[in-house]
Amino acid sequence: MRICILAYRFPPTIGGLQTYAYYTARILAEEGHEVSVVTETVEGTDAEWPPGLPCPFAIHRLPSLKPFVHGRGSLFACLGELRATLTALRPHVIHAHDPLSLLAANLAWTDVGTPLFFTFHWVFDAHEAGYARRDYGAGRLNRSETLGLERSLMRFIFSRCRYERLIAVGPPFLRWAESFGAPPDRVVYLPNGVDCTVFHPRSPDPMARAAWGLEAEDLVVLCPVRIVPRKGITDVTRALAALDDPRIKLLIVGSIRPREAAYAQEVRDLIVQLGLGERIRLVEGVSLDRMPALYGLSDLVVLPSYMEGLSIALLEA
């Protein structure tokens, strides 16, 4: 069967959606299906596929997908690229991993004989705390107007777009799906999971710690998050400052997108301001295949997010 995974984020960048989409594609390919992933373009070091990460599927990166999803690009440019790609792939099934990719698939691929599935990952309550994703014309709309437009768009997508099943990966997503008007008979609760052959308890490796500049007697706290405000990174930084023990070390590991560069710099400045440069490391560009070793060398994993759906990072830990 030819299966198209449509996800605006995908490895080498890391995050919950990327992890879910990657393992979905990998498992389906290993079961003998012809899997193609349609996703965003990546640049710089993020463009290098990790050598330790199996890739038994094809990846098609569309330059117009990420700008469209973030509200900074043309819908028509995205539809043109997506339609051409899907025409070449001729998928038997399309599996979208975010609402706007689902919308684009509905508009670009009008063959109603192709089943569409939709896994719902996006966290919405964080928007109400002031972290809206889309701009809708920066400088022209205030936060409440932006959120109102986004919620109206989500209601349209969930209630009017074509999809066979909506897969909710955690309890909050069931609530949001209902609030956005998803037909109850098409909603399936299938919680996030992890590969227990990869993520399992292991003894701390002194050599692995040394590679990260850590001592055997250090108490290592791992914070595996995307570097965005809703993940509460400044809070955990201040919490470490209150623990006056130089043996407690914090590894903040995650991806930094260009739009979050200013926040990442805010975190770095706070680390310097609090005199924690020897106790905190903010590391980006760690690929998915390196995460099991990081969990293994850590004594504690923290996730100080203001809101999560069903965190894959916590399940991995």
Rank of each mutant, 00 (worst) to 15 (best):
E48C: 10
R61C: 09
P229R: 11
W49K: 01
P183M: 05
L300K: 10
F76Y: 13
G193R: 12
C78S: 07
P201L: 04
L62A: 01
G16A: 11
A7E: 03
A108P: 07
T13D: 11
L288F: 11
V286Q: 08
T19R: 13
L274G: 07
R209D: 07
A317Q: 04
S159E: 03
M291E: 01
D195W: 10
L222P: 01
R247L: 05
P91E: 02
P11Y: 06
L86W: 09
D235H: 13
R290I: 02
P184M: 11
I271V: 15
R281V: 13
P63M: 02
F173D: 15
D98I: 08
I157G: 04
V37F: 04
D111L: 13
T24C: 07
Y306D: 10
Y23F: 14
F120M: 08
S179D: 11
A29Q: 04
L315D: 07
G275M: 14
E217K: 12
E308S: 09
R238C: 04
E316Y: 13
P304S: 09
Y23C: 02
V112Y: 09
H60P: 00
G232H: 07
A262P: 02
E316T: 06
D218L: 07
E308M: 07
H95D: 07
L276K: 10
L103E: 02
A262H: 04
R268I: 09
F117E: 00
A210E: 15
S36F: 04
E43M: 11
V228A: 15
I227T: 10
R209L: 09
V302N: 08
S298E: 11
P204F: 13
L240T: 11
R247I: 02
P304D: 14
G275A: 13
S74A: 06
L149E: 06
P67R: 01
I312F: 15
A47Y: 00
R209F: 05
R162V: 00
M154G: 02
A210H: 13
Y8K: 03
E31V: 06
A317D: 01
R290F: 02
V38Q: 09
R83M: 12
Y131E: 06
L294I: 06
P56H: 04
A129P: 03
L107A: 08
M307I: 00
A261Q: 07
T87M: 09
W212D: 06
T114Q: 06
S144F: 14
D185L: 15
L79Y: 12
L251Q: 12
C78E: 11
C161T: 12
V37W: 03
H95E: 03
T197I: 05
R230P: 00
F173V: 13
G113D: 09
G137I: 04
A168R: 13
Y131V: 05
R162K: 09
A58D: 10
R209V: 11
L116T: 01
D244M: 00
W122Q: 14
L315Q: 10
P91A: 04
T41D: 12
A182G: 04
D98G: 01
P191T: 10
A7W: 03
T87S: 15
R72C: 00
P206N: 12
A208V: 12
L222R: 03
L86E: 05
E145M: 07
C223Q: 13
Q265L: 14
I94E: 01
P11D: 05
A177R: 06
R202M: 12
F57G: 06
L270P: 02
T85N: 01
R290S: 09
R238S: 09
M291H: 04
H33R: 14
R134A: 12
R279Y: 03
I157Y: 06
A138Y: 08
